[in-house]
Design a protein around this nucleic acid. Structure first.
Lengths: 110, 110
DNA sequence: TATAGTACTATGCGATACAAGGTATCTGAA
DNA sequence: TTCAGATACCTTGTATCGCATAGTACTATA
């Protein structure tokens, strides 16, 4: 592994968590999500976010509604389902567990 | 994505960080590493750790020395190189950045 | 010699991030 | 009316990584 794809590899699966976190606050459409993740210093591109949203929708974690746009084509606004909120809790737990494991590895032995 | 491979995906790339963290404290051989990661609640198996160690070695982040074992075949004891220690710092930064991004997404808007 | 235990290696699969390219809609200027 | 640009969505192919599985090699002991 080289430096360039370092964060790329480390984020595998985490983007799912971040996207759900984001949508839990407020509904959004794909381009909007990309912008918001960029605000959080997470660089994401279209080729990543569209398949991700489709997966989450097919698993029943998200739903969407088409809505007219003031400019340009209509938008798909995604929102969390109840199942999605439950899944978000699980992801949160998994993330916290990972952090605990790392903390454990840091302080251990010497 | 289903619940089972949730943590699996999330850990992608993180295991590299954990392994380097672990070896930064004390040298170890593969089976030893698996045991130590298990102590930190990270379940890892042989098929994961051996390719990972090979990659890190080929990238110059690790070196190893063969050493006799009190029982069974000789062991490959891995240690970090200077380049490996530099890489560990980068991984640490990447990890902290990810945590900051998530914290940002949690508190943002509402 | 045979068996069990330990350690390392190789192969194939599924999931994911990403680059690159494509389609469709709307607005405004020529 | 036509066309360029912006917006928004979607698809395909590639590389990487964790993992299951199977296999190889060495040592000690009966």
């Amino acid at each position: 592994m080289i430096k360039e794809n370092l964060s790329s590899q480390m984020r595998k699966g985490v983007l799912e968590y971040c996207t759900l976190l984001l949508l839990n606050r407020k509904r959004a459409y794909a381009s909007d999500i990309i912008t918001r993740l960029k605000d959080a210093r997470l660089i994401v591109v279209e080729g990543t976010i569209y398949p991700l949203l489709s997966r989450l929708k097919n698993d029943g974690f998200l739903t969407y509604e088409w809505e007219e746009s003031p400019q340009g084509p209509p938008r798909k606004y995604y929102t969390l389902t109840d199942k999605g909120r439950e899944f978000l809790v699980e992801l949160e737990t998994a993330w916290n567990d990972l952090n605990e494991s790392i903390a454990h590895l840091k302080e251990k032995t010497l």
